[in-house]
Amino acid sequence: MYILFAFLLIILIGFFLLRKKKNEIESDETNIETYRSLLNDRVDYYQKLNEQEKLRFEKCVLDFLQYVNIEGVGTTITDSDRVLIASSAIITVFGFGDWKYKNLTNVILYPDTFDNDFSFEGENRNILGMVGSGFMNGQMLLARAALEKGFSSLSGKGNTAIHEFVHLLDKSDGATDGIIENLITREYVIPWLKMMHKEMHRIQTGKSDINPYALTSEAEFLAVAAEYFFEKPEQLKHKHPEIYEQLCNLFRQDPA
């Protein structure tokens, strides 16, 4: 009797597990059709991939949305928000296989710019995005207006979300310093630093088209240069071939 009961219980558990798996697969298939349409409409990087790479990109987007929670403050999260945030994350690490952001649990989306107190109302709201630290560790904050602009024809050489994900990548070795030591080989560290400081001097003297915000620190130089690399790769390669080559080595991609 007990053996029969145990056998029936195993069958019942198996049935529910299979049903749950089937529902998850159907949900993924429904989501990917929606996401694929948005990727084709909104993400230039995705559009330039071959068919095999597109499938891998789509899988990476689904995986990212499984382990990172996206929530809105003063706004409701849409599928477009999810796709653009996930795409920003995946573009940055697409050269690293199945990379996962172990230092990220939540992305918090604000409707517009916010201030140091995380308020999106009133004056002095000039923050487009940030990676949290201290009690905000593991969090990323983004302004929807900046997220949208980064994937529009008005983006130019900038993309705030990519900028912030590069900071997260930089932070993955324990220090946000413009050198991703767990990804860059030792032979490239000194040339990268020399080239970085040389270009920072050119920015200071008005001889570079790189955003002057890159002068803030080595970490900001990396994030700003990465925006340029992913948004206008052909232009960066033409105007700054040395920087382009270094970033190709760092991100293991050649987008131009």
Rank of each mutant, 00 (worst) to 15 (best):
A225Y: 00
K149N: 14
L39Q: 04
N249A: 14
K171V: 03
E218W: 03
V107W: 01
F118C: 07
Y213G: 09
E164Y: 07
V189E: 00
D209P: 05
S27T: 11
T75F: 03
C60Q: 12
A175N: 10
I70C: 04
L84I: 10
M140S: 04
D63R: 10
I179E: 00
K22R: 12
A225L: 10
S172A: 10
L65W: 06
K21D: 11
E29H: 10
K194R: 15
P111F: 12
R202P: 03
Q246F: 07
F251I: 01
E164W: 04
R36E: 15
A214G: 07
G122E: 12
V131C: 08
E26R: 11
A225W: 00
E199G: 04
M1A: 10
I184G: 00
I162M: 11
L55S: 14
I10N: 07
I77F: 04
G178Y: 00
D112W: 08
S27V: 05
T92V: 15
R36C: 08
L141Q: 13
R252Q: 14
K171Y: 09
S80E: 15
W192P: 00
E242V: 15
N103K: 12
I13Y: 09
L128M: 07
C60A: 12
A145N: 15
N249S: 13
S133K: 11
E148Y: 11
F57G: 00
F229Q: 01
Q253N: 08
S153Y: 08
R125S: 04
L84N: 02
L154P: 02
Y101W: 09
Y46K: 09
L8V: 13
G174M: 04
Y46N: 03
L142W: 02
N249Q: 15
V189H: 00
S155Q: 08
K21R: 11
G132S: 07
S88L: 08
L169H: 01
M136K: 13
R42Q: 15
N40H: 15
C60P: 01
G72P: 03
M200Y: 06
E199F: 05
M196P: 01
G97Q: 13
G156P: 08
S208I: 06
R252T: 10
Y46S: 06
N182K: 13
V83N: 01
Y2C: 04
G158K: 13
N106W: 05
K21N: 12
I3N: 11
N103M: 06
G174I: 03
G129S: 07
D117M: 09
L141F: 15
F118V: 08
Q246V: 02
T78F: 07
L142G: 02
E24G: 02
D81P: 03
F251C: 02
E242M: 13
F114V: 08
F5L: 15
D28L: 11
I91H: 01
D173I: 01
E227Q: 14
S172K: 02
I77N: 03
D44A: 14
A223G: 12
K102R: 13
V107Q: 04
F230D: 00
I210P: 00
A214W: 00
K100G: 05
Y45I: 10
V93M: 03
V131M: 11
S87R: 03
R56H: 09
I11P: 02
A6K: 15
I184V: 14
L193K: 15
